[in-house]
């Protein structure tokens, strides 16, 4: 993902939004026929095709109940990207907050605010779900995505991730 930063002069990113900005972008819940495009985009971004993984996510996120959001962005009716998030509570001792688990933008659609709009829409849905904090985790080396999240105003939070190899 790259170039999803907001363009100057487009500060009125209203949440409900997406359709009221005078262009053809819209965000909507994922549907089954999006899976091929999502799997393909993920392969472009990560170099590895994971169709079973994406299908299992789709199945899990379409199940009503917990506040989970799997959104697809369309520009001119064409798949432009996706974002996935979920409200989680009390894990690691954290009060309820919205987690962003994945975001991807079609390379040809970058630098057109697709990522920003998907992010805004997810924030709106998190707020509606009653949380006031959004959080994510990403690789330190993933400069592009980290720059994107920072451009959205995100900063390091109060948690730190630790790990150990199990020899």
């Amino acid at each position: 993902m790259s170039g999803v930063r907001q363009k100057a002069g487009t500060s009125a990113r209203t949440a409900a939004g997406l359709a009221d900005q005078g262009d053809t972008f819209r965000a909507r819940p994922v549907i089954e026929s999006d899976l091929a495009a999502i799997t393909g985009l993920d392969k472009v971004n990560t170099g590895k095709a994971k169709p079973k993984y994406w299908r299992s996510l789709y199945e899990r996120y379409r199940t009503p109940g917990r506040p989970r959001f799997f959104l697809v962005g369309e520009s001119g009716g064409v798949f432009a990207g996706f974002i996935i998030g979920e409200v989680r509570a009390w894990e690691f001792g954290s009060p309820p907050c919205g987690w962003v688990f994945a975001i991807g933008v079609v390379p040809e659609q970058r630098v057109q605010n697709v990522g920003s709009r998907l992010f805004d829409e997810l924030c709106r849905q998190f707020k509606q779900a009653g949380v006031d904090k959004i959080r994510t985790m990403l690789a330190r080396q993933d400069n592009l995505v980290m720059s994107f999240f920072r451009s959205q105003g995100m900063m390091a939070g109060p948690f730190i991730e630790l790990e150990k190899s199990l020899d």
């Binding site: 930063r5 330190r140 400069n143 980290m146 720059s147 920072r150 451009s151 105003g153």
Partner: peptide
């Protein structure tokens, strides 16, 4: 050091000015 570099390398001039 790695955390410092990752932090400073992810904040663009534009993002910083917004901050």
């Amino acid at each position: 050091d790695e955390i410092s570099r990752a932090t400073l390398g992810s904040i663009t001039i534009e993002t910083f000015l917004n901050m």
